[in-house]
Design a protein around this nucleic acid. Structure first.
Length: 193
DNA sequence: ATACGGATTTACT
DNA sequence: GTAAATCCGTATG
């Protein structure tokens, strides 16, 4: 069953990032169903997180898509070639997000391999990065604002409980530019194999 | 009009 | 380990 709106509207993005591990994400783009199990996430908060302030400033008007009620998609491109998938959380005037960094492919393997191209031959690299998974799922920045209760892009609760000893918490990736205060926050979560 | 920078991936040595 | 790819939105003049 779908993850309900209340899940996304809670005020602590770190807790939401933690809780999203083990959930399943699906997309139906071009009529093709693809999806997988979430194994790595990062939290971003409008409070006490310099990287979020910089992001909003740098992204200006487009970043205002972040100012949406919890439970919508926010996708944007970085390095002019890759798309990243975030989930808006909290309330519209308190813009927090969770970035999906890695999933374990479950549904629509052939479609995802096709979308990823030749480098997908290595199965471990099919959806093991934030831009890899958006490509595999067929996601583009145009999907920003999509309601995750719809049938285009959504998350499902797989009734999986991840125990703390199967979790790894660490600093977020690629945020050195935002300064040590932001780069050192242990807001990245991953399921250990 | 032009300059700048980045929540990455891939192919190399 | 390092470096190149690659093009868009925002800011600034």
């Amino acid at each position: 069953m779908k993850v309900p709106p209340e899940f996304y509207r809670r005020p602590d993005p770190v807790q939401i990032a933690r809780d999203l591990l083990g959930k399943h994400v699906f997309s139906r783009v071009d009529g093709q169903l693809t999806g997988g199990r979430i194994v790595e996430t990062e939290a971003y908060s409008h409070l006490g997180d310099d990287s979020m302030q910089l992001h909003l400033k740098r992204r200006g008007t487009h970043g205002h898509a972040l100012r949406a009620p919890g439970g919508r998609a926010y996708l944007y491109s970085v390095y002019r070639q890759h798309t990243l998938f975030n989930i808006c959380t909290n309330a519209a005037d308190k813009p927090d997000t969770v970035l999906l960094r890695a999933i374990e492919p479950l549904v629509g393997l052939e479609i995802m391999e096709q979308r990823r191209g030749r480098t997908a031959k290595d199965a471990r690299k099919l959806t093991a990065g934030p831009a890899m998974l958006t490509q595999a799922l067929g996601l583009t920045p145009a999907l920003t604002g999509t309601d995750l209760q719809g049938d285009l892009l959504w998350l499902e609760d797989a009734s999986e409980i991840i125990a703390d000893h199967h979790l790894l918490a660490g600093p977020r990736i690629g945020l050195d530019y935002a300064g040590p205060a932001a780069a050192n926050l242990p807001w990245r979560f991953r399921i250990t194999d």
